[in-house]
Each structure stands twice: as C-alpha cells, then as structure tokens.
Write a protein that binds this DNA or RNA. Sequence first.
DNA 1: AGAAAAAATGAATCATAATTCATTCAATGA
DNA 2: TCATTGAATGAATTATGATTCATTTTTTCT
Lengths: 214, 214
Amino acid sequence: MAYKRSAMMEERLAGNRERILEAARKLVAAGGFREARVAAVAAEAGVSTGMIYRYFPSKGDLFVEVLSAAVENEVGILREIARGKGSATEKLAAAVASFARRALRGPHLAYAFIAEPTDVEVEAARIGDRRKFGNVFKEILKAGVEAGEFPAQNIDVTAACIVGAFTEALIGPIGPTRRARQNEAELVAAIALSCVRCVGAAPPAKRTARSRKI
Amino acid sequence: MAYKRSAMMEERLAGNRERILEAARKLVAAGGFREARVAAVAAEAGVSTGMIYRYFPSKGDLFVEVLSAAVENEVGILREIARGKGSATEKLAAAVASFARRALRGPHLAYAFIAEPTDVEVEAARIGDRRKFGNVFKEILKAGVEAGEFPAQNIDVTAACIVGAFTEALIGPIGPTRRARQNEAELVAAIALSCVRCVGAAPPAKRTARSRKI
DNA sequence: AGAAAAAATGAATCATAATTCATTCAATGA
DNA sequence: TCATTGAATGAATTATGATTCATTTTTTCT
C-alpha cells in the first residue's frame, strides 16, 4: 500500500525540483544552452544526473520550463508597463529600457531566450514565447496608433523590428563592445530612442538636437 | 620524388573542392546546418566522407567557408548600394529591401546566417560576419548624419538596431515557423520603412516601397 | 608495362552527451 | 524494530555524428 509523503518530505521534493530549475537557469545565464549540459545542471544543483529525470521527462522539457518561466516573468514586467500610465511613446521607451537594463545584467539569459537556437523541442517552445513577447509591444503600438501618436503601420512588422533592434544592440557584435560601453544608462537611452523612432513617434525633444516632425 | 599533377588532374581536384562546397551550400540552403552532416554533404557531392577531410581540415572549416562566401556576396551587394547614388535614406531603404528580398527567396540560407546555431567555430565566424554587415550600415548612417539627413546619434547602436530589426522581422517568415507569407513586396516595404524611421529620417513621402535600387 | 606516389574509399574508431537502470539509501507505517 | 515503498545514485548504455586510417584505386613517370 502506498505510503503517504510527510509534509516535510513533500517540501524537500519540491525543493529539489526548484533547485534543478534554478541551477539550469543559472547555467544558461552564465553560458547559454550550449554549456548547460544535464551533467552540469546536476552538479550545480548538487544532485545526480538520474535525479534530473525523476523530475523532468527530458532535457528538452527542463529547458522549455526554464525558458517559459523567464519569459513569463519578463512579459509580466513589460505588460505592467504597457498597461500603466503615460503616453504610448513613454511606455515604449520605458519597456525597452526596462528590458535592456535587466538584459545587461544577465546577457546570456537574454540571448538564450531571444536568439540562441537549440534542439527542436526548445526551439518550438520559443516560438510561442517569442510571440507572447511581441504581443506586449503590439499592445503599446496599437494604442499609440489609435491615439494618433504613431503613424499607421504594419504593427506585426514593427513589433518584430523593435524586439530585434534592442536585442541585437544589447547582445550582438555590432553594437558597442563591452569595453566601450562605459555608461550603461547612456546605452540604454540610445537603444530606447532608436526603438521610439522606429515606430515613427516624434522623439522626446531632449538631448538629440534635431527632432523631426513626422 | 614527387610526381607533378597534370593540368587535367589539377582541374579535377579543384572541381572536387568546388563540388563539396556547393553540396554543403545546397544542403544548408535546403535544411539548415542541422541537416548538413558530413556524410550527407559527401553523398550530395558524390564523394566519400574521407574525401571531405582531404579538402577541409574539419567540418567547421568547411561551413565557415560556406558562410563567409555567402556573406561576402551579400556584403558586396549591400556595399554597392551604400556607395551608389541617392540620399542616405534611399540607400538605407534600398539596402534593407534588397537583403530582405533575397532572404525571403532563400530562407534557409538566410536563417542559417542569421540565427541557426552550430559549433563554436562557425558561431565565431558568424560574429565576425555580422560585424562586417553592420559596417555597411554604419557607412550609410555616417554619411546621412554628416549630410544632416539623419539626426546626430550613436551610430554603433543604431546600426545594431537596424540589423537586428530587419533580421528579427525576417525570422518570423523565414525561420522554422515560416507561416504562410502574405504579400512579399508589402512585407519588404514595411521592414524597410521601419528601418528608415529607426534612424530618425523623415520617411520618404509615398513611394518608399518601390524605390528598389537593386 | 610496372613501380612509386597520390588520391579516394568507407568501415572502424572516437567523442560527446543524453538517458537508463541495477543498486543503494532513506522514509513510512505496522 | 523491521519490512516495504519510494527516492537517489552514477556507472553503463545508447545515440549521434565527426574523424581517422588501413586498404584499394588511380595517376604519374620511367
């Protein structure tokens, strides 16, 4: 007859699962999917490789969960900004800046969930995640267009462009190198400004001398 | 004592190398790096696997060459646009549209270049290639800013944003998701327009879509 | 033609990393 | 306490695919 798990035991098991997820997240953040091997995750979590498989059907499933948790969290933050107060332009700039600031702190994680390709399973999951992500920006865009703040445009394309733009600027090799970006705040501001321009909004007349009428 | 290779023999050997490269390119274009195994390349080229290694030190080297040839070609086209005539705005729109059109035509190759993961060796090469890419756009940006056509800005950041923007916008249609593509011309126009706005140029009055220089 | 050199072959080997499972260890309940 | 179930281990297995190399075939030269 089945034994009942004591509360303490129950808790420990949940803790194991949590520790595995956390270890996986940490390894991805540190070195991308490529370096997050099952054995490494197990070592990081302080458990055996076999244990991973008690909690997750496969490596793919584990990473799908890591990915979706990170995206869920990120989307939550951005959506709050999107639904908060302020003009669409302000919200767009705030959302981009918010993401950028966090990404600069854990670049590999941002890269992994935006861009780094992996096995089919994870790739498939990312497709959904990516969409969720774009949707937040679409929300802002839609509101901005309806308010007459942005010109009419193909919202799907622009949303993708925005996501691509700040992503590449943050982690790609074209943007300022790590050494060259002495000033994080300035970089974040420059990226946000590019994104704001990308939707055709009149940029807030600040330091950028020539603001254009659109 | 070494034998001298006859002209015909020489030619055949060069032909072998070429056929291997071409087979690799074809397989990548057809199914991405993932499906371009050494054995498959050999079969496609009609040679043995061992032969690959007579011509290329490793699989990585082979694919680096495939990639860089494609990029060289692409960058050449874009640079020509960048150095041709027209305003910076027009050149920017033309360059983006030109790339996008080709990408939509050879989706896998573009995808492989843009995003698909591979071994470190190829990944490293791609980073360099991406930079070359960004440089073309920096050229256009610099000229545009100097001409007073674009507002003063952080060129490194904007160039990265542009490359990221059209790249990301294309991944939807060319990536593994590849949904039914509606109207190619319209998509290309929308992407180019977003990129033009991104630099802060006043979008050309009406006919942005059709100013196809190349 | 025939010996030496070079090219080509592809099965065998090596490398990497995920997954399994026989075994050990710990918790449960009589 | 002790028999039983469930949890945990990690070495062995499996899977995939690149790379090697002993052998065969072709080319070159006398």
